[in-house]
Design a protein around this nucleic acid. Structure first.
Length: 365
DNA sequence: AAGCCGGGGGG
DNA sequence: CCCCCAGGCTT
C-alpha cells in the first residue's frame, strides 16, 4: 500500500488526461490558459446536479443558459416559465429556490455571485455541498466537496465501515485532508468524476483506478460493500384519481399546484387526494360537470417515499363549462413537457390508449 | 434527528 | 418488476 499523502497530485494528473467534457466545465487546459469559469453557470449546474446525473442534467442546463444567459435574466423570469422549463427534472423545490437565489444575488450582491463560502451558504438552495462546489469550482477556494461520490471514494480509500450518515463527519475530515490549496476546483471535479466513472457503487473499475495502490478497501477486498448504509424503509402504495378535461376549443383543464408540498408550484391535472391503500378509496368528484370516462389501465409512478397508482378519467367538455377546480389553458399554451413526469404519464395514457375501460355511469366516480 | 422531496438507470 | 442512487429544507 502506498502512502496517502499525494492523493490530490495523483488525482489532478489523472484529471488532466481524463476530464470529461461538460457544457459548464472549463477544462484543466483551458483553466491554465487563463479561462475563468462563469459562477452563474457553475451554480446552475450544481443545483441541477443535486440528486441528478450528469447525463440527465446536460440538456436542461443548455436550455436554461440559452434562455436565461445571466443571473439578471433569470431573476426577472416568470415563475411559471422557470417551473415549466424545469419540468421532468424532479425535486421541484430546487427550481423554486433557483429563482429565489437568482433574485437574492441581484438584490443583495449586485448581481454577482459572492466568492465567499459563508455568503454562498446563506443563499436559498445552497447547502454545504453546493457552497463548497461553487467555492472551489468557480473561485478555486480550497473547500472540500462531500457528495455521494466523494463519500464513496473516501469510505473505500480508508476502508471505513461506519454506516452513512453516521460516517459523514469522518468522511468530511478525509475529504478536507486531501483538498489542495492550489487547483481546488479541478481537484473537486476530479474526485467526483472518479466516483462517477471508476469508483462506482457497483463493480468499481479498480484495475484502472489511479488510486488503486493507495486504496485500503481495495487491499482488503471490501470495496464492493462500501460505503455501508443504514437500512432503508419500505415505500407505501397510495391511490388517487386525475381528471383530464379538454374543452371543445382544445383548451385543457389544469391547475397550478400549491407552492409547498409534493410537486409544489408545478402544473398538474385536477384530482383526488392520494391516500394509502389501507384507507378507503378517495372520494373524488370531477373538476367540472361533464361526461367523464374512466380510461383503461392506470398510471404508476414512484416518488421518493411512496408508490402511486392513479386512475385516469377523461372528458370532452362543452365550450360553456364552468370549472369547479382548475382553469382552462388554451391548447397553444400547453405543452405536455411542462408537466412533472407523473402528470405527463397520465397525458400519455390518454393518447396511447384511447379505448375507454367502461362508460361513465355516475356510480363509477 | 427525522421526514419530505423525483426521476433515471441497472440488474 | 424491484433496487439503487442522493442535497437541502422543514419540522
Amino acid at each position: 500500500m502506498r502512502e496517502k499523502d499525494n492523493i490530490s497530485v495523483t488525482l489532478l494528473d489523472w484529471y488532466d488526461v481524463h476530464a470529461r467534457e461538460m457544457p459548464w466545465r472549463v477544462s484543466p487546459q483551458a483553466r491554465r490558459a487563463g479561462r475563468i469559469p462563469d459562477p452563474y453557470a457553475i451554480w446552475m449546474s450544481e443545483i441541477m446536479l443535486q440528486q441528478t446525473t450528469v447525463a440527465t442534467v446536460k440538456e436542461y442546463f443548455i436550455r436554461f443558459i440559452a434562455r436565461w444567459p445571466e443571473v439578471r435574466d433569470l431573476a426577472t423570469a416568470q415563475d411559471a416559465d422557470v417551473m415549466a422549463e424545469w419540468a421532468g427534472l424532479g425535486y421541484y423545490a430546487r427550481a423554486r429556490n433557483l429563482l429565489k437565489c437568482a433574485r437574492a444575488v441581484v438584490a443583495e450582491h449586485n448581481g454577482v455571485f459572492p466568492a465567499d463560502h459563508a455568503a454562498l451558504l446563506k443563499l436559498p438552495g445552497i447547502g454545504p455541498y453546493t457552497a463548497a462546489a461553487v467555492s472551489s469550482i468557480a473561485f478555486d477556494l480550497p473547500h472540500a466537496v462531500l457528495d455521494g461520490n466523494v463519500e464513496r471514494v473516501m469510505a473505500r480509500l480508508y476502508d471505513l465501515h461506519t454506516p452513512l450518515p453516521d460516517a459523514k463527519p469522518q468522511l468530511m475530515i478525509h475529504a478536507q485532508t486531501h483538498t489542495p490549496s492550489l487547483r481546488a476546483g479541478d481537484y473537486a471535479q476530479a474526485v467526483m468524476d472518479l466516483g462517477a466513472t471508476i469508483c462506482t457503487p457497483k463493480s468499481p473499475a479498480c484495475g484502472i483506478c489511479p488510486l488503486q495502490d493507495a486504496c485500503t478497501a481495495r487491499a482488503n477486498g471490501t470495496m464492493a460493500e462500501l460505503p455501508k448504509k443504514l437500512p432503508k424503509k419500505a415505500k407505501p402504495v397510495r391511490h388517487g384519481t386525475v381528471y383530464l378535461g379538454q374543452r371543445t376549443d382544445g383548451a385543457w383543464l389544469l391547475e397550478t399546484r400549491p407552492e409547498k408540498g409534493l410537486l409544489g408550484g408545478m402544473l398538474g391535472w385536477p384530482g383526488s387526494d392520494w391516500v394509502d391503500v389501507a384507507l378507503a378509496h378517495p372520494d373524488s368528484s370531477p373538476p367540472a360537470a361533464g361526461d367523464w370516462t374512466l380510461m383503461a389501465g392506470d398510471v404508476r409512478h414512484t416518488f421518493t417515499h411512496f408508490h402511486l397508482i392513479l386512475r385516469v378519467v377523461s372528458a370532452e367538455l362543452p365550450q360553456n363549462t364552468t370549472p369547479i377546480a382548475g382553469t382552462f389553458k388554451p391548447r397553444d399554451d400547453f405543452r405536455p413537457s411542462d408537466l412533472p413526469t407523473v402528470m405527463r404519464k397520465a397525458f400519455d395514457l390518454l393518447h396511447t390508449d384511447a379505448t375507454p375501460h367502461m362508460t361513465k355511469d355516475g356510480s363509477l366516480l
